[in-house]
Design a protein around this nucleic acid. Structure first.
Lengths: 221, 221
DNA sequence: AAAAATTTTTAGGTTTGTCTAAATTTTAAA
DNA sequence: TTTAAAATTTAGACAAACCTAAAAATTTTT
């Protein structure tokens, strides 16, 4: 029940790829971890022998129940530290990810549970990603991207799926953040850009930006 | 200017041995790091080639100016995290050291400076050890052990040089902690135990315990 | 000052995680 | 349905950090 930093990074990367893309390939994993496909294969054998994933050569792999459980705890550590860095140390939104990459490998369960308690059991990190609880359970909201939000439906921003400095800049300028309430007024067919209403102001955003902003709303029954 | 966890642990251990014992030997270092003398020699060659220490085979070694500087920064990280764990996460005094051993290797300078600021630039960790500032400077108090404290001289507990659970237990029971004011009333020649006065109470402590409690006082001119 | 004991270093291995280059296997194209 | 392309795995090496056992240097004893 104790893993190397490398093993943890692989488990986490597989978990994220599985979530986002559905499948995980050797090349995609190598790309994500900035390493070579051969190294990935080596590690797959190791994680397979530890029963953390299902692996059949040439046919891909996926996390076992055990592997997923561990990945969730790594994600929990990562996101709690992100929350701490943002909320307590006042780091910018785009800086926290890198720092949390290191902190997430400090693995004392007691430490993380205390941190969680100190932070008030937050359910979402600064980008809106859900933080697994101490049983590994994730609170799942029915989030949709701004592109899919029906017209005139008031919704709340829950998550932003791009954490770059550039993204932070544009969002700050347009006064959009986690928790912002808005509604879609218009779709332009020419470039698929969108016109929003935020607190009686009209704001225009590109398709590219809308794609990365996720919201929830109460469907009007 | 980037070191492995192993290199950092060696630098820190050499620093502490140098402080406490004056000299550092291969065996002592191996003992402290729970490793073998042969491994120590390997690492000494490596650190020597990086100019972090002065090393002449068979004649011992000592940190170079550069090595000492780095060691001080590792100590800074360690003690700031200890302070955080104790002050914010409410860990017991004897638990913080182990956890800080992991956290100290998260090395972003910016992170540590922010943490320092968040904690209010503490000068001493929970055991009373001084925390180097962001220039590596240590605030040095003229501490003496309780054994050396003159009679009837009111002094303040500044440091406890043993961080075990057992030590915590006895100190809590006798209501002694960092900041406690006390004076020595009597030395017993039979077993060298000491009688103290703390807030109008009389407290007796063994020589062994007194040895590990350090205090400061204003010499009555 | 020679012998014995201790300390330190060298020599040669092991494991982990990485790499390159070559060989397989699978998938896509002709 | 062969051939070409792409993806994946194997084979063989390498660096870091450790190990054991043996050799060398130093220190202590006699």
């Amino acid at each position: 029940m104790n893993f190397t930093i490398s093993e943890e990074n692989y488990l986490k990367a597989i978990f994220h790829l599985q979530e986002k893309e559905g499948t995980v390939t050797t090349n995609a994993l190598a790309e994500k971890l900035q390493t070579k496909p051969a190294s990935v294969t080596d590690m797959m054998k190791k994680l397979n022998s530890k029963k953390l994933l299902h692996y059949k050569p040439y046919y891909g792999f996926s996390l076992s129940a055990e592997g997923k459980k561990i990945a969730l705890f790594i994600v929990r550590r990562h996101r709690l530290w992100e929350y701490f860095l943002s909320e307590k140390l006042k780091f910018d939104w785009n800086e926290v990810h890198m720092l949390a990459e290191e902190l997430e490998h400090v693995s004392s369960k007691q430490l993380i549970d205390r941190l969680d308690q100190y932070l008030g059991h937050p359910q979402f990190d600064p980008h809106g990603d859900p933080i697994p609880d101490n049983k590994g359970k994730i609170k799942n909201l029915n989030k949709i991207s701004l592109l899919e939000l029906p017209f005139h439906q008031i919704a709340e921003v829950r998550q932003v799926t791009n954490q770059s400095k550039e993204m932070l800049e544009i969002l700050e300028h347009k006064h959009i953040g986690i928790g912002t309430k808005l509604e879609v007024k218009k779709h332009f067919h020419f470039d698929h850009s969108i016109e929003l209403k935020i607190k009686n102001n009209t704001v225009n955003i590109s398709e590219q930006l809308a794609q990365n902003i996720f919201v929830t709303y109460e469907p009007t029954a």
